[in-house]
Computed example of a mutant assay.
Amino acid sequence: MDREELLGATPEDGGTEKQKSPLLSLEKDLEFYSESIKEVAIEIMVEGISAHPIFIAHQHQVNIGEIILNREELNTDWTIQASTLEEFVEKGIINKDRKESFLKTYKKPESFMCLFVVVPEGANFVYYPYKQGRG
């Protein structure tokens, strides 16, 4: 699933602003968080913790990973937690026999953050490009 799919249809189809996706606020927060998330991803890889960092974006409570950006402390809409492919497999979120298939779609972690976005309707993986700039 890509970013456009997750963010849903744009208001071009009738201009119904009332049905604005809460995921639009996620995109805004990811712009703000981008550098911090990239630093954590690099740290996870450099320290040998995992070659496949995964970040969980949520607005409630999840029991995976560690909080790195708390929405209450930062006055944003989304909390981000850092995890790894290994923890996702260990906790059964990614089935062991689906791991290889997941790895085939896993994008370059130096260029994209792998997000597991949790919303009331469910959860899905999204790849979001890091902000270009100082690097």
Rank of each mutant, 00 (worst) to 15 (best):
K28Q: 12
E35S: 11
K91M: 14
T10E: 10
E66H: 08
E86A: 13
K18I: 07
I93C: 04
E73P: 01
L103Q: 09
L103F: 04
D29T: 11
E47Y: 12
E4A: 03
E12M: 06
A51S: 15
N63M: 09
G92D: 03
K104R: 15
S83F: 07
E47V: 02
L23P: 02
P109N: 02
Q132A: 14
F116S: 02
R98Q: 15
A57W: 02
T105L: 12
E43H: 13
F112M: 06
D13I: 08
S36L: 10
K96W: 12
P22H: 05
S36A: 14
K18Q: 08
K107W: 05
F116T: 01
F55W: 04
H58S: 07
V119M: 09
P129R: 04
V117T: 09
H60P: 01
E110P: 00
E39R: 15
E31D: 13
E35K: 13
D29S: 09
E72P: 00
P129T: 08
G15Q: 01
A9L: 12
L7E: 04
S83R: 02
L85K: 11
P120Y: 10
P109W: 02
I42F: 09
D77Y: 11
L69P: 02
V126Q: 01
G122Y: 04
I44G: 00
D77E: 13
P120R: 08
L69M: 08
D29Q: 14
I37R: 00
Y106W: 08
S50R: 06
S50V: 08
F112T: 02
S101W: 09
P53T: 05
E100S: 14
D13P: 01
M45P: 06
D29G: 11
I80E: 01
G92W: 04
L74P: 02
V117N: 04
E90D: 15
Q132N: 12
Q81V: 00
I64P: 04
E47H: 13
G65C: 11
S83N: 05
Y127P: 04
E72F: 11
A123G: 04
E17L: 14
L23N: 11
D13H: 08
A57E: 02
Q132V: 15
S25G: 05
L115A: 09
K91N: 12
S50P: 10
E4D: 06
L30Y: 09
V117C: 04
I37L: 13
V118F: 01
V117K: 03
P11S: 09
D77C: 11
N95M: 14
Y128E: 05
L69H: 03
I67L: 05
Y127D: 13
F102T: 07
G65T: 14
E86Q: 15
G48A: 06
G122I: 05
V126K: 00
E73T: 07
P129F: 03
E12Q: 09
K91I: 11
L6S: 06
R134V: 12
K18E: 09
Y127R: 12
S25L: 12
A82D: 03
G135C: 02
N124Y: 08
I54R: 00
L6W: 06
P120Q: 09
D29I: 13
E100I: 11
F55P: 01
D97C: 02
K18D: 06
G92H: 05
P11Y: 10
I67H: 00
I42S: 08
V46K: 10
